[in-house]
């Protein structure tokens, strides 16, 4: 669960059609964003529903840096108002999202950043962004040998030598 702190209404103007949210990143940066933009995040939507139930507005503390949070906001701003199939779990099973040119450019970042974005998207429950990142990672390891995959994603080989050479334990059939 995220940490929620009470905020003064004057800090977060919440009237009218473009109500604002205050997001606080792990490096303690305060970012104000329109509620509409973040409505793609099921996590944020649930928080907002909570605000409405208690008639209190809060800042939402998030466990990732402002740099990552700004990337996520950039994504949500770009697709503001768009219906994305992947956000509807009934309409689109995972693995069927189309490649979007903009997403490819947006995710043209280094490995660590990509992993941070997908973790943030997963935390915020933005399915379309999780899907796009997952696809980008799958593309990185596609056609690669086991050793290359370990190298690319920084994974340590923890198989024992016996497991390494035993066909049955490594599912080689």
């Amino acid at each position: 669960m995220p940490t929620i702190v009470s905020v003064d209404d004057s800090t977060v103007p919440g009237e009218g059609s473009s109500r604002l949210l205050l997001l606080v990143s792990s490096d303690n940066k305060h970012i104000v964003v329109e509620e509409d933009i973040m409505s793609r995040s099921r996590f944020i939507s649930k928080q907002v529903e909570g605000f409405e139930a208690t008639s209190q507005r809060h800042a939402i503390l998030l466990p990732f840096s402002s740099f990552v949070l700004n990337k996520v906001i950039e994504y949500c701003s770009h697709y503001r108002g768009y219906y994305l199939l992947e956000d509807d779990p009934d309409a689109a099973p995972p693995g069927r999202s189309p490649v979007r040119e903009w997403d490819q450019e947006f995710l043209d970042v280094d490995r660590n950043m990509l992993l941070r974005i997908i973790k943030a998207a997963h935390y915020l429950e933005i399915k379309s962004l999780v899907g796009s990142c997952a696809r980008a990672i799958a593309d990185m390891i596609r056609g690669k040998t086991t050793e290359e995959m370990r190298e690319i994603l920084g994974v340590e080989n923890d198989f024992t030598p016996e497991e390494e050479h035993s066909p049955s334990s490594k599912c080689t059939g």
């Binding site: 086991t146 370990r150 080989n157 198989f159």
Partner: peptide
């Protein structure tokens, strides 16, 4: 299926 050979996790 090569992903199953990367690590135990």
């Amino acid at each position: 299926i090569g992903v199953t050979h990367v690590c135990s996790r």
